[in-house]
């Protein structure tokens, strides 16, 4: 199980790097789906099968298909790819990478003093649903209102 975690983590990091370095939008999207699926594997290894299934269905399925539809609608083509190649100069990458590297270094140095193992037991759908429709039912209602607001605003914004 531990080997599965590190393998999936490796795939996730490599494919995420590929997403931010790609010039073709559709290729970047496919790499993003790969990254999300490997994160779903990590969720499964960490004992959250419900979250893993939702990650595969909602993130890698629904949200990425939405992206794909919009990319197909925009019909970007070769011109945008050449422009992307021009924008991907080394000069624009140095400072953000430096700043983000400093942030990551701080994070790692704080976290490496934290020495505890994860509990190996699996928390299944039953426990999650019992909490979701018990003490957290208000959060579910708020999430549905958020989704409704997103639906209405997306309809309004995408209208001609």
């Amino acid at each position: 199980m531990s080997l599965l975690f590190y393998l999936a983590a490796f795939v996730a990091v490599i494919s995420t790097v590929a997403v931010i370095l790609q010039t073709n939008v559709v290729h970047a999207l496919i790499y993003l789906i790969l990254s999300l699926l490997s994160v779903a594997v990590i969720f499964y290894v960490l004992g959250s099968p419900f979250a893993a299934v939702l990650e595969a269905i909602v993130y890698a399925g629904a949200i990425m298909v939405l992206f794909l539809f919009v990319i197909m609608m925009l019909n970007l083509g070769q011109h945008t790819r050449d422009q992307e190649k021009k924008w991907l100069s080394l000069k624009g990458w140095i400072l953000p990478c430096l700043l983000a590297g400093v942030l990551l270094f701080q994070l790692v140095s704080v976290l490496s003093s934290y020495d505890q193992n994860m509990a190996p037991e699996t928390v299944g759908v039953l426990e999650v649903s019992a909490l979701l429709f018990g003490p957290y039912v208000l959060a579910v209602e708020l999430a549905s209102i958020l989704l409704l607001a997103g639906l209405i605003s997306a309809y309004h914004l995408a209208k001609k």
Binding site: M1, S2, F5, Y6, A9, A12, V13, T16, S35, V39, I42, V45, L46, A100, G101, L103, L104, L107, V108, L111, S112, Y114, D115, Q116, N117, M118, A119, P120
Partner: peptide, 16 residues
């Protein structure tokens, strides 16, 4: 078992 900080560091790397 997997150390917790490895999972958190992975999350940090992806976030960065």
């Amino acid at each position: 078992t997997i150390p917790t900080e490895h999972g958190l560091i992975l999350a940090g790397i992806l976030f960065v």
